[in-house]
């Protein structure tokens, strides 16, 4: 049996027909066609699929899609405002905070969750909060610098 899933995605209401075991990641990428959210490990370890549910960071690969019924989901596609990049996107770009780019959307969403709650986090708070997002190219220092730049209003 398929189930109807209704939720708010990047500000707009959406419906999708899903299986009970489909994850939010499956639905975003394969049913809705938003492929900005990446599938890395599918076990919650790498953070590439980080999205916001009701403004809290979660791994979309660990989230059974039907559990977001009625909730608000924000993905990397929801960061831009019109043609303006989000300040975090600009800072990542300026600081070279990505190399292959696979982890970047997850990194951006985690960073947004952090700054929305703590606009001026210490360096160690940034390091700790971002510990769930792995980057195999090793851009950690640039990621931290980019987040610090946004927090410092630069």
């Amino acid at each position: 049996m398929k189930h109807v899933l209704s939720f708010t995605l990047n500000g707009a209401p959406v419906d999708a027909l899903v299986q009970a075991t489909d994850t939010l990641l499956d639905v975003l990428r394969e049913k809705i066609g938003l492929t900005g959210t990446k599938r890395g490990c599918d076990t919650g370890n790498c953070g590439a699929c980080t999205v916001l549910i009701d403004n809290e960071p979660v791994n979309a690969c660990l989230t059974i899609a039907l559990t977001v019924t009625g909730k608000t989901v924000t993905t990397v596609e929801g960061l831009v405002e019109g043609s303006e990049l989000h300040p975090l996107q600009k800072a990542f770009h300026e600081h070279g905070a990505s190399q292959c780019g696979f982890c970047t959307s997850g990194m951006l969403m985690a960073a947004k969750a952090l700054l929305d709650k703590h606009p001026q986090p210490s360096r160690s708070a940034i390091v700790e909060f971002m510990s769930g997002n792995l980057c195999r190219c090793g851009t950690y220092l640039e990621v931290i610098e980019a987040i610090q730049a946004v927090a410092g209003g630069k």
Partner: peptide, 9 residues
Amino acid sequence: SGGAATKTI
């Protein structure tokens, strides 16, 4: 236990 995104759920 876990990271920020796992702790949430």
